[in-house]
Design a protein around this nucleic acid. Structure first.
Length: 181
DNA sequence: ACCCCGATCGTA
DNA sequence: ACGATCGGGGTT
């Protein structure tokens, strides 16, 4: 008798997932599983940075060596160094030539421990993500990718954190806390 | 060559 | 609410 296969394949998200409107990608990444080496966790918080018209986006003043991968194809990591001591991880979105990305701000680890990495700096520090990991193709890498998930958790939209310009946009998306029984 | 500031974090 | 911290991007 044939065994039924798992209903949810939960395969890797392809580059096409990221090659879409950034706000859609930022919202839909919530609940997905990010895999980085031995680490795996549920994405719980994201922010969208969209193109040269978004004053908070690193690409607002054009292409530079630092932000160049934002102008490239979607589904690639964009890692930058900030405040002299932290790194931040993004995933490039939209079609090649349009500079946009989603900042990963929160990760609920599943493996190998179960802590909640809240904050982009803490997240990168804990996982060991640095500028060496800038420009990696999440559609190809064996150790760094995002898995699909049946989860579609409720979330709220707020202004983005730590920016001076563009605070009018509600482009931060946070999974709501689970209600306690 | 140099200056200034930041997509943060932890403590007050 | 605020200070620590400092590399490097952007400009001189």
């Amino acid at each position: 008798m044939m065994k039924r296969k798992k209903i949810f394949r939960c395969g890797r998200l392809p580059s096409e997932f990221f090659n879409r409107p950034t706000l859609s990608v930022a919202k839909e990444l919530l609940g997905k599983i990010m895999v980085y080496g031995k680490y795996a966790g549920v994405i719980t918080e994201t922010e969208a940075y969209i193109g040269q018209d978004d004053p908070a986006c690193h690409a607002a003043r054009g292409k530079t060596p630092r932000n160049s991968v934002m102008f490239g194809p979607a589904g690639v990591s964009y890692v930058y160094f900030i405040y002299g001591m932290y790194h931040c991880l993004n995933f490039v979105t939209e079609e090649e030539g349009k500079a946009a990305a989603v900042l990963i701000r929160g990760l609920m680890l599943l493996e190998p421990s179960q802590e909640h990495l809240n904050g982009p700096g803490k997240l990168c520090r804990h996982l060991g993500i640095t500028c060496e990991h800038n420009g990696l193709d999440l559609g190809q890498s064996e150790f760094f990718y995002v898995k699909d998930s049946p989860l579609s958790p409720p979330f709220e939209a707020t202004p983005r954190i730590g920016i001076r310009q563009g605070q009018d946009k509600l482009w931060r998306f946070v999974v709501k806390k689970e209600k306690q029984k």
